[in-house]
Design a protein around this nucleic acid. Structure first.
Length: 216
DNA sequence: GCCAACGTTGGC
DNA sequence: GCCAACGTTGGC
């Protein structure tokens, strides 16, 4: 996305930085399907999908603007809430549009010294137009997007908690490789099979397995 | 800083 | 519509 990059925007009107855009900008075709995530089908609580969203925790200038936005930055926002702007990839955008309030997402640190999952957040506002696409000085400005038909969306996310311990990418990769060989929950994890996708879905099994790693 | 992966652009 | 060139993502 953009790489994460993102910046600013406060959620709900505050203006601070939001999570940044996380990665991806790109435009693919609108045809990427909005995805279908297995939804559970009942009406209990939390039957929705799980997500993983990437953002860069270390400073990096993009068009002169620092796109840093790590989990500590989210935690520091008013109400520990921020908008996730800057996504400029159609497939990632479609996942943003599929998110429902209260669904949980891992906050993944990318393009940094130690990449991996830093914590948990939840969706507190469903997709709405990403205002940064219309701001000429924003690193993710998209001159092809029109106000009356915005191309890009964002959601608001709220910090839930840090992982009990940071889960490094290298560790996830080790499990992914073992699971590919002998079967296991991370066998098809998007982090490895859809390498550059900054917003991605996780199955219940993937989510639960990753949470179980906290105890090791 | 290098570079592999992969999405986008644009000539034809 | 093909595909080479190019730009971005993001690990290492």
């Amino acid at each position: 996305m953009p790489r994460p990059r993102k910046r600013l925007a406060g959620a709900a009107g505050l203006d601070k930085k939001g999570p940044a855009g996380k990665h991806v900008k790109t435009k693919n075709t609108e045809s990427s399907s909005p995805q279908k995530i297995p939804a559970s089908k009942n009406c209990e609580k939390n039957t929705g999908s799980y997500w993983l969203m990437k953002s860069e925790p270390e400073s990096r200038l993009e068009k002169g603007v620092d796109v840093k936005f790590g989990i500590e930055d989210l935690k520091a926002q008013p109400k520990q809430t921020a908008c996730w702007d800057g996504v400029r990839n159609y497939q990632a955008r479609n996942f943003l549009r599929a998110m429902k309030v209260d669904e949980e997402a891992f906050f993944y640190h990318s393009n940094c010294k130690e990449p991996g999952i830093a914590g948990l957040m939840k969706i507190v506002k469903e997709a709405y137009p990403d205002h940064t696409q219309f701001e000429k000085t924003n690193p993710h400005y998209d001159p092809s997007s029109k106000e009356d038909n915005p191309k890009w969306s964002m959601v608001d996310v709220q910090f839930v908690r840090m992982m009990k311990r940071f889960i490094p990418l290298a560790e996830l990769k080790t499990h992914h490789q073992a699971h590919k060989a002998t079967g296991g929950p991370l066998k098809n994890m998007a982090l490895f099979t859809r390498q550059r996708l900054s917003v991605q879905p996780l199955t219940q099994e993937e989510f639960d397995f990753i949470l179980s790693l906290e105890e090791k």
